[in-house]
Computed example of a mutant assay.
Amino acid sequence: MASALHRQRLATVVEHLVSSGARSVLDLGCGEGELLQQLTAHACFERLVGIDIDDRALEAARRALGLARVPLQDDRTQVRRGSFESGDRDLCGFDAGVLLEVIEHVDPRRLACVERAVFATMRPNTVLVTTPNQEYNILHDLGPGEFRHPGHRFEWPRAKFRQWAGGVAARNGYRVCFFDIGPADPARGSTTQMARFVRPEIGTMRATA
């Protein structure tokens, strides 16, 4: 069962996707399909695609979403094997993309590949990225250098995350703003931090439509 914090993360991401006006959503690192399950409850989303490199997680996602093994998709929802470190041209043209608690599982030396694949090649109109706030770890009873999950390769403080996200936005023609998820501490912020990237020309086109 998902923790209360993870349920809040999912709810926050869904809220931002709905408010963005997205009709198609790409879940990058979809795991067992928790976000996709939430999105299927909203009729505004007409196309939902999740990718992951973990075959067992993908099979669990298919079961959870009620997708037959063959074919691996229905008219609206699909999960498939794929990596958000490689720019798949078949995954271009989505209104929104989500990296939900996944970048911290990537070797920091590979983040440039993620940037090229997601922001330069696939180029969703809106991209949401959530990741742990390292400054909050002491409130989770973690010591210096300890991570929240054994699969994490890094956990960033807010300044480092904002520096990375600002660079990604500047290099790829996005604007970025930041949000906190979870209870806030006056000095340390919230346990989860989120960046929302938007291609500014999309907002201009909507405003003039």
Rank of each mutant, 00 (worst) to 15 (best):
R80V: 01
M194V: 11
N125A: 12
P186A: 05
G97W: 02
G182W: 07
A112V: 08
D74R: 11
R89H: 09
S3K: 14
N172L: 13
Y174F: 13
V168H: 05
V14P: 03
D27H: 02
G143S: 08
D27T: 00
G189L: 09
W164M: 03
H140C: 07
S86C: 14
S190A: 14
R89T: 14
P132V: 08
A187K: 15
C92T: 15
I202P: 02
A60G: 09
H149D: 15
G82N: 05
N172W: 13
F119A: 02
A61I: 00
L26F: 05
G167Q: 09
C113L: 10
L17F: 06
I53N: 15
G93T: 11
L10Y: 01
H105D: 12
I51Q: 03
L48K: 00
D90V: 00
F178D: 07
F197Y: 12
H6D: 04
R7N: 06
R7A: 01
A96G: 07
G50V: 00
A159M: 13
D55V: 14
C177W: 13
P71S: 09
S86Q: 14
F84C: 01
D88E: 05
G82M: 05
N125P: 02
T77K: 00
E46L: 08
N133Y: 08
A60N: 06
D75L: 09
H140I: 03
R123H: 14
R162C: 08
R188K: 13
H16G: 11
G29Y: 03
C92R: 15
A96H: 08
P150V: 10
R81L: 13
D90E: 09
E135N: 09
Q163H: 08
G189R: 04
I53K: 15
N172Q: 11
R148C: 03
S24F: 01
L128W: 12
R110I: 07
R56I: 01
V114T: 04
R148F: 03
P150H: 12
L28F: 04
L65N: 02
T126A: 11
S83Q: 14
L58T: 01
L17N: 00
D90W: 04
L10S: 01
G145P: 07
A41E: 15
N125K: 12
E59S: 10
R188H: 14
A195L: 10
A207N: 11
D54F: 11
